[in-house]
Design a protein around this nucleic acid. Structure first.
Lengths: 228, 228
DNA sequence: TGATTACTTAACCAACTAATTGAATAATTA
DNA sequence: TAATTATTCAATTAGTTGGTTAAGTAATCA
């Protein structure tokens, strides 16, 4: 039995819509973005995305059936991860489209940044160049698991929750560039706010490892400390 | 009143999900793909996507509120078009992701091509290079409106519906490369089938203008015939 | 002016979805 | 072996969606 043109088209578009359905729920996008920073267990994901465990599990199941994530049982835990790099690139292209088409998203970001006096024009490419050239101290303020799963080469890991206590580790003279998960992640905003209050010269880089990797630049993994 | 972190995140992801919701219905993806070939009226879209006019209008309204398409009243007609190039690039990235993650979509295509004996390994990049260099006759078999809205430079427009009657316009010696809307479009498959049966050397190029433009290559517009 | 054409809207229904609650399963530890 | 922990599953509920039919609007034409 061979398919008619219409049946073939319908079948193709139904498959394409599986991707759309997967990213049609806000919480599923949030889960994907967290996973784009590295693998996580269900419990961790539920906590980070502010979901009940059962609910998170169901969303993850949906993401699994649309093949955007993989799950691997590790003892008592189940570790979820993005299925492959193409998923990260897709997330990035969704963000790009949303940024270019939805005035609301730009407005939200502007309002949020303004409310904490963090609005400043930064030349993204120039900032990224300086980060690549090692001209600044690069501060990764994400949770340490995410740092370990992959970070910008040369970056120092100081999770936002520990920043206050570990301030003295940072030299005061040099400029500090803080980054976290990406443009909509607020940890680096908080970090820069704190650093400036304490007299440091600090700016935020809104790109994260997802963007870094998409540009084909090298990502470093591991804690830096020798393991085992 | 300033937003809490959680409220800000929820608001951001809700906005991102608007894009996902827009492309979570197969018919809306089909409409977007048709529009990626050029502007169309509601009636034309309904017909091409096999929808009732009322239903098409409702899907288009959804696409309008998620800002992926624009509508412009032209006398008695309403002309819809993709809001901007970023929408086309997003469609392409969805296809790429679906192709890489969903075995079903690859299987569907393989089955469909196999059923009409059209399976053949073609080196895409090499084929595109030959098309760019003008080493082959390039045949655009889409409806003439789509050709006029934008086509591969040097391509000849012979809509699939007219191909049989206009075969004699094509020289028999040279190799013919037929293309249409993109990888899931079947018009070029039919064209190649017909051409071969009549003794032409013909192959299909699965990329369309969307892909061409995304690579930064030039697109030509107009009918070629002098208007007015 | 009234008819025609192209499109939108309203009302409706069946099907589906997200989130909650509580029970079930499966691996590990005591 | 029993208890604990991490996750999944099943059942329920409120809310949403896609599609149909029929009525409404707006521009054009006779």
């Amino acid at each position: 039995m061979s398919l008619s043109h219409r049946q073939y088209k319908d079948a193709i578009y139904e498959q394409l819509a599986r991707i759309g359905k997967a990213v049609s729920a806000p919480k599923r996008i949030e889960l994907l973005e967290i996973l784009s920073q590295g693998p996580r267990t269900v419990e961790a994901l539920a906590k980070l995305a502010d979901l009940s465990v059962a609910n998170a599990s169901q969303h993850l199941k949906a993401l699994r059936t649309s093949r955007l994530v993989d799950a691997e049982k590790k003892g008592l835990f189940v570790e979820y991860r993005l299925a492959d790099d193409s998923v990260g690139r897709y997330l990035l292209s969704t963000q790009t489209l949303a940024d270019s088409r939805l005035a609301e998203i730009r407005q939200l970001t502007r309002d949020f940044l303004e409310a904490r006096g963090a609005l400043e024009p930064v030349n993204r490419d120039e900032l990224m160049r300086r980060v690549r050239e090692g001209e600044v101290i690069v501060l990764d303020v994400r949770p340490s698991e995410e740092y370990a799963a992959g970070h910008i080469p040369g970056a120092v890991s100081v999770p936002i929750s520990e920043l206050k206590a570990r301030l003295k580790e940072l030299p005061k003279g040099k400029e500090i560039v803080a980054y976290c998960r990406g443009p909509y992640c607020v940890m680096s905003i908080d970090a820069v706010e704190l650093l400036r209050k304490r007299g440091y010269r600090a700016v935020r880089m809104e790109q994260g490892v997802l963007d870094w990797r998409a540009r084909g630049w090298r990502i470093e993994a591991g804690t830096g400390k020798t393991k085992r």
